[in-house]
Amino acid sequence: MTEVFQIPYGDHPSQFGVFRMPGVSGLSPVVITIHGGFWQSKYGLEENDPLDEDLTRRGYATWNIEYRRVGEDGGGWTGTFIDVIDAVNHLTQLEERFLLDLSRVVILGHSAGGHLALWLASRINNVQTDEIDSTLLVPIQSVISLAGVSDLRKMWDIHEEQGGVSQVASFIGGSPHEVSDRYRLAYR
């Protein structure tokens, strides 16, 4: 029997996750899911519910995280990045209660969530000296990026060529010409 919990990892209304625990004995491996939607507040974590339900039926604990997005107080640079680190690190507080095997953690992100999953992987074993002064405490075994936005500069170029507003610029806080260091840090 799967148990489902909505658990906050911070004080903002978007700093929470939906945790699903499989009905198995022993330690459970964990899959962290991060939703897409170009980091925009109009999209939410519910897009991952069917995937998480299936993974839980297969014996994985799932942690479907929400985060502050563009259009919300604190969303975008640097809040979104800090949120995904804090959400992953929150597993250390859930580990004993739910019998989690934090040596077997996979991050799976879709679209903008794929970008965030890849970005999290870039922070493994790195000493952080950038504007995003948060350390990843949970070891990540694997990362899966489904249609991840892996090149923010290229995506900015595509939006610029189409004459539209760039969701990447809204997320990062400017164009690659205005805040080039942020683009480098956001997808290294």
Rank of each mutant, 00 (worst) to 15 (best):
D52Y: 00
P50L: 02
T56K: 06
D54N: 12
G76E: 02
R58A: 14
R69Y: 04
T62K: 04
G75W: 03
G74F: 05
G71Q: 09
E72D: 01
D73G: 05
P50A: 09
E53K: 14
T62E: 06
T62M: 01
V70P: 10
G71N: 09
E66K: 03
R68Q: 12
W63Y: 14
G74Y: 04
P50Q: 07
A61T: 12
T80W: 02
V70W: 07
N48T: 13
I65W: 01
N48E: 11
T56I: 04
Y67L: 02
E47I: 13
E46Q: 13
N48I: 00
R69T: 09
E53C: 04
W63R: 02
W63T: 08
E53I: 15
D49H: 14
R58T: 03
T78N: 11
D49R: 15
L51P: 03
R68N: 11
G59I: 12
E46R: 14
T78Y: 04
T78Q: 12
E46M: 06
Y60C: 05
T80E: 01
I82M: 02
G74S: 07
T80H: 00
E46T: 14
T78E: 11
G74D: 01
G59D: 04
D49P: 00
P50W: 06
T80S: 15
R69F: 06
G74K: 04
N64E: 10
W77M: 03
G79L: 04
R68P: 08
E72C: 09
E66C: 08
D54R: 14
W63G: 07
N64I: 01
P50G: 06
T62V: 04
T80I: 08
D73Q: 14
E53Q: 15
D52F: 00
E72Y: 03
G71T: 12
D83A: 05
F81K: 07
N64W: 01
R69I: 06
Y60K: 09
Y60Q: 00
E53L: 13
W63M: 01
P50F: 07
I65K: 03
E53T: 15
I65E: 01
R69V: 05
T56C: 15
R68F: 08
G74T: 07
I82A: 10
A61P: 11
T80G: 02
I82V: 15
R58F: 03
F81I: 04
T78G: 03
Y67W: 05
G75H: 08
Y60D: 00
I82F: 03
G71P: 10
G75I: 10
Y67M: 05
L51I: 14
D49F: 15
Y67R: 07
V70Q: 05
E47L: 07
F81C: 08
D83L: 06
D52H: 00
N64V: 09
G74A: 01
G75R: 06
D83Y: 03
D73N: 11
L51S: 00
N64D: 14
F81V: 08
W63C: 04
G76P: 12
R57V: 01
L51Y: 13
I82K: 13
